[in-house]
Amino acid sequence: MTQPAAAPQYPGISALIHKHLSNVPFTATTTGTDADIHVAAEHLLALVEGMNQKPELAFDMLANVTGIDMGEDTLAVKYNLYSFTHNHRVQVTVTVAWADRVIPSLTGIYRAADWHEREAAEMVGVVFAGHPNPKNLLLDEDLRIHPLLKSHPLQTVEILQGIEEGVPGFKF
């Protein structure tokens, strides 16, 4: 998303995060509701751990995890974090290429991440490294498709069932 030239480098709450976690490189933009922090996958754990631990930030709740197919073989994962102590919120974005779609799991910091990550993994195909139970959640256990990829057509799930990776299923 393009920003006007006058916009600050660290808008909103991201300035505070940059102040307390200046060793983690990130850039920041804004969405309609939150400051949006863009961080590389290898720095994600350091950033989120710091945001959780520092008493000035105290992001103690992981509200939401969204996996998105951004087109051109890129995936994005959006984390919405919230602090009960300070009543502030932020969004963290990690963008990865399809060929290298491994993102560290946040289950060690937030136990709420468990089901959210399982859902994002099956829906768009992100691999969460270190997830304790990486099984399908909403989809059937032996289904190896990612329905929320833009290349996946609407209404043909049953035809794809069981074809990929030689898993037993229907034959057409």
């Binding site: 998303m1 969405t31 309609g32 509701t33 939150d34 949006d36 509200a63 939401n64 969204t66 998105i68 959006k78 919405n80 919120r89 969004q91």
Partner: peptide, 21 residues
Amino acid sequence: DNAECYIRTEGTKGEYGVYAM
């Protein structure tokens, strides 16, 4: 056009949020 938001509402069971892009 290009826009993004995360809406949080108090649903009957808790935080009913909608992420939209």
